Amino acid sequence: MKAAESLERELRVAARSLGRRGLAHAYGHCSVRLDERHFLVCAPRPMALIAPGESGQVVRIDGPLPEGVLGEVRLHQQLYRRRPHVQAVARTMPPSLMALGTARRIPKARHGMGAYFGAGAALWDDPQLVRDDALAAEVIDAMGDLNAIVMRGNGVVVAAESLPQVVSLTWFLEDAARLELAVLSAGLEPESAVLAASERERRATATGGIFERMWEYLCAGDPELQ
């Protein structure tokens, strides 16, 4: 099965954006659903270094990973298998989320960008790599219906309805973690407001070009968008 050229290009742009914006380094991967049986994962390289035109690999949602596909891509498989509305997944290592995760903490919804995660992301309290199907299923079970799960000392998995959304949401969650660390380091936690459920619901809007503008910002300068 061959993915459409435009979708291959969008996946490469998403991968490079995650890497170039400091949300992933040598490790991490992103993917996009092709149909009910397949998804496309980016090349198994540092995402910022994926070259224009470099192909990803098609993976079956049910079945063993193809040779050469990174082991933790099982997390993507489990999400696509269990949640039909999920169209894109990113597995990254954002630094502020990594720091909070070591303390078994997730960022609270203190500002608008944090509102997109409800009361917060899920937490997986294990720093080990997820390289078998049973463990991948446990992680996604722990994620539940949320759109992100922070893995203690091991980054984050974010799921969304498109590649622009998954890249934007990854940046939003890292910004929420940055703010959380700033609030904690300043000793302002008792005074810092956390958004109520009604405030989160109103603020977490997709209208007005929210995701489109963030996608444009994060992808600026990409060699395949010149």
Rank of each mutant, 00 (worst) to 15 (best):
E180F: 05
P66Q: 01
R60M: 03
G68Q: 10
E212W: 07
D132R: 08
L135Y: 14
A186C: 13
V130C: 07
A115G: 04
P127Y: 03
V41R: 02
S55Q: 12
V86H: 13
D133S: 15
K108Y: 14
A24C: 12
L40A: 11
P190S: 04
V41W: 01
T205D: 11
M98W: 10
E138Q: 12
Q128P: 00
Q226L: 13
S6L: 12
P94Y: 06
E72F: 03
A115R: 04
L97K: 02
P190L: 11
E161V: 10
V69A: 05
R9E: 13
E189S: 14
A3V: 08
E67G: 11
A134P: 08
Q226N: 01
E191F: 09
R37D: 12
L135C: 01
V73Q: 02
D126K: 01
E138Y: 05
L173Y: 15
A142G: 09
F211R: 06
Y217L: 07
E72C: 09
G221V: 08
P44L: 03
R45A: 14
C42W: 07
H29C: 09
D125T: 00
A121Y: 07
E199D: 06
R37T: 07
A15H: 12
D132M: 09
A134T: 15
M151E: 04
L179E: 09
R9V: 10
D35A: 06
G221H: 05
L70Q: 10
M47H: 09
A4L: 14
V130A: 08
L225A: 12
M47K: 06
R105S: 10
E138M: 04
H38D: 00
L97A: 08
D175P: 05
R81H: 14
G71Q: 03
A159S: 11
L34H: 06
A103R: 13
V59F: 02
A197P: 06
A90F: 06
R82D: 13
L11P: 09
I149Q: 03
E212L: 02
P52H: 10
I61S: 09
P107V: 09
A220E: 14
P107E: 11
K108D: 10
P52I: 14
E5F: 07
A142H: 00
R91G: 01
A88N: 05
F172T: 03
T92M: 03
R104F: 15
L7A: 12
R202V: 13
L23N: 00
F39G: 07
L179K: 06
F172C: 04
R16E: 10
P44V: 07
R82T: 13
L129C: 05
A51N: 06
F39I: 04
W124A: 03
H85P: 08
E201V: 15
D62A: 11
R45K: 15
A137Y: 02
W215L: 10
A3E: 07
E67C: 09
V167K: 14
E138K: 05
M151S: 02
L181M: 13
A90I: 12
I149E: 05
A159P: 01
V89Q: 00
L100C: 01
L135N: 04
E10P: 08
L34P: 06
Q77R: 04
E67R: 14
T102I: 12
R213S: 13
D132H: 14
E201A: 15
G155L: 11
R91D: 12
E174W: 03
R91H: 15
A193C: 03
D141K: 11
P44Q: 05
L97V: 15
P84F: 00
T170L: 03
V89E: 01
R37F: 02
